[in-house]
Computed example of a mutant assay.
Amino acid sequence: MVYWFDGQLCQGSDIALAVNAPALIYGATVFTTLRVYGQSLEHPLTHWAAHQQRLVHALTDFGWPSPNWAQVRQGAEALIEDYPVLRITCLSDGRELVTGRSLPPDLETMQTQGVAAWVARGELYGRSQPAYKTGNYLGAWLALQAAQRHGAREAILLNAQGQWLETSTGNLWGWANGQWHTPGLGAGLLPGIVRTYLIEHLRRQGEQVNQSPWPPGVIPCFEVLAYSNSGVQIVPIHTVLGDRSRLDVNPKHPALGALRAAFREN
């Protein structure tokens, strides 16, 4: 594979880190994952500026040096001909790593038929520093592995009060009473770039988004459940699996059209 590390385009799948590197010992990195549309960082759906700002915000809050942003962009430009999805990682010492990957081969089926999601209960699945995308994603990764063992594609993460927060890879959406809902940031979740974009898109259409918390009692009220992220756009959830429960939801509800419309390329 081709990747970019510390100002250099590289071939292979390995990078060299010191055995005491904070990235290795503490997961001391911040990252963002973006989908590149039209092989252009300037395409409005790529949201390049928002992804860079996410990194700048985290680096500033953590007091870490910024990478050479011209090098970061150069690395991204070098990979977009081969990869539609890029992950940009900033190490705590100012170095950058840009890697690429393909879209899921069954993405169209995911978007049209939906996926099953498993509710990840317990402290084991909590995410460290949930407002930031750091290298310490162990809780979300463990939740995703457990979900797959339960026959689900995604995991739903909870806070200590049992409120639904997000999935292991994206932000949650629900449709009820003629309105879209998404958990509010105050509950302790990632301010996803696509989440923000969809809220703004719906507001431009005259629709308000309810950002109240999602305690367990409200979940059966939703006619639609879905999750969003930069790579998959919007994916419906057709089945929610609990330890002793199952909730079936319509993955073809017409309300999903309002969210999908946000990704139509003009």
Rank of each mutant, 00 (worst) to 15 (best):
L79C: 06
T112W: 07
Y227E: 07
W180M: 07
L189T: 01
H238P: 01
G100M: 06
W141S: 12
G174K: 09
T239D: 08
G7V: 01
P251H: 03
S13E: 09
G114V: 03
G231A: 15
L144Q: 15
M110P: 05
H238E: 10
R101N: 01
P104Q: 05
G126V: 10
I237G: 05
Q129I: 13
W141P: 00
L17M: 14
W64F: 04
L256K: 09
I219E: 08
W141V: 14
L189D: 00
E207K: 07
F31I: 03
Q179I: 14
V209P: 03
L256F: 11
W175S: 02
L259M: 07
A152W: 09
L107Y: 02
Y37D: 02
L34E: 01
A160P: 13
S40A: 11
L157S: 12
V30P: 05
A255E: 05
R246L: 02
A143Y: 02
E42A: 13
R244E: 02
R246F: 01
H47E: 07
I234P: 09
N250T: 12
L45F: 08
T196I: 06
G139R: 01
C90T: 00
H57F: 03
Q113V: 11
T29D: 04
K252N: 09
G170C: 08
Q211L: 13
R35A: 13
V19A: 13
R87P: 09
V119W: 10
L55P: 00
G231E: 15
N229Q: 04
L55C: 02
Y125C: 07
Q111H: 10
R95Q: 10
C90F: 00
H47K: 14
S168T: 11
A155L: 03
V36P: 01
R149T: 14
G174T: 08
R127F: 03
A262H: 11
C90I: 09
F31V: 04
W180G: 04
G192Q: 07
I237H: 05
Y83K: 06
S230L: 03
T33L: 14
Q205T: 09
L41R: 07
L59S: 07
L165I: 14
V72D: 00
Y125D: 12
G188R: 10
D106S: 15
P191W: 01
P191L: 08
G100N: 01
E42N: 11
D93N: 08
L79F: 07
R260P: 10
